[in-house]
Amino acid sequence: MPIRIVYASQVCPYVGRQEMHAIVSLADESNRRDGITGVVAFDEFQVIQVLEGPRDVVEALYDRILKDDRDEGILTLQKHEIETARFPDWTMIERPIADVLMLINDLI
């Protein structure tokens, strides 16, 4: 059964917008390959991300995120099984933080 993980974190001070855009671009490619969908938002200080897909693949990705030194203070907001993906056409899309917060509110 697929799962959804929603998390928030703080971006390390040395990670700039250009690097974040590069991360999103790489995530789009690898998520497409791995069957993961989701959405991410970031500003200079915070990241909020929703990941959906096969349990083993999403959990493996989240484990890598937890070990990545570009994120600090990672807080898991949701982690549960889902019937269907909320973002089936978005392998990884960047949206404004306010939009993602409203999307997360709809998921609860």
Results as ranks from 00 to 15, higher is better:
residue 2 P to H: 12
residue 2 P to V: 03
residue 2 P to L: 05
residue 3 I to D: 03
residue 3 I to W: 13
residue 3 I to K: 09
residue 4 R to V: 06
residue 5 I to W: 09
residue 6 V to R: 13
residue 6 V to P: 01
residue 6 V to D: 07
residue 8 A to C: 11
residue 8 A to P: 03
residue 9 S to N: 05
residue 9 S to A: 13
residue 11 V to T: 15
residue 11 V to F: 05
residue 12 C to M: 09
residue 12 C to I: 09
residue 14 Y to L: 04
residue 15 V to Q: 12
residue 16 G to P: 02
residue 16 G to Y: 04
residue 17 R to Y: 08
residue 17 R to Q: 14
residue 18 Q to C: 07
residue 19 E to M: 10
residue 20 M to D: 11
residue 22 A to G: 12
residue 24 V to W: 06
residue 26 L to V: 10
residue 27 A to S: 15
residue 27 A to N: 13
residue 27 A to L: 12
residue 29 E to Q: 14
residue 29 E to G: 08
residue 30 S to C: 14
residue 32 R to L: 02
residue 32 R to H: 14
residue 33 R to N: 06
residue 33 R to K: 15
residue 33 R to H: 12
residue 35 G to Y: 03
residue 36 I to A: 00
residue 36 I to E: 00
residue 38 G to N: 08
residue 40 V to D: 11
residue 41 A to D: 07
residue 42 F to W: 03
residue 43 D to P: 07
residue 43 D to V: 10
residue 44 E to I: 02
residue 45 F to N: 14
residue 45 F to R: 13
residue 46 Q to G: 07
residue 47 V to Q: 08
residue 47 V to E: 09
residue 47 V to K: 14
residue 48 I to S: 06
residue 51 L to T: 01
residue 51 L to K: 01
residue 52 E to H: 05
residue 54 P to Y: 02
residue 55 R to M: 04
residue 55 R to N: 03
residue 55 R to V: 12
residue 56 D to T: 08
residue 56 D to P: 01
residue 57 V to A: 02
residue 57 V to K: 01
residue 59 E to P: 01
residue 59 E to F: 03
residue 60 A to Q: 06
residue 60 A to I: 00
residue 60 A to M: 05
residue 61 L to K: 00
residue 63 D to F: 00
residue 63 D to W: 01
residue 64 R to C: 02
residue 66 L to V: 01
residue 66 L to A: 07
residue 67 K to M: 10
residue 67 K to A: 14
residue 68 D to C: 09
residue 69 D to A: 13
residue 69 D to E: 13
residue 70 R to M: 03
residue 71 D to C: 05
residue 71 D to W: 04
residue 72 E to C: 00
residue 75 L to G: 00
residue 75 L to C: 14
residue 75 L to N: 06
residue 76 T to Q: 11
residue 76 T to A: 07
residue 77 L to C: 01
residue 77 L to H: 10
residue 78 Q to S: 15
residue 79 K to Y: 05
residue 79 K to S: 02
residue 80 H to Q: 13
residue 82 I to L: 06
residue 82 I to S: 15
residue 82 I to D: 08
residue 82 I to P: 05
residue 83 E to S: 12
residue 83 E to Q: 11
residue 84 T to S: 15
residue 84 T to C: 10
residue 85 A to N: 08
residue 86 R to F: 12
residue 86 R to N: 07
residue 88 P to Y: 10
residue 89 D to M: 07
residue 90 W to L: 11
residue 90 W to G: 06
residue 90 W to D: 13
residue 91 T to M: 06
residue 91 T to A: 11
residue 92 M to V: 03
residue 92 M to P: 05
residue 92 M to Y: 13
residue 94 E to H: 13
residue 95 R to D: 07
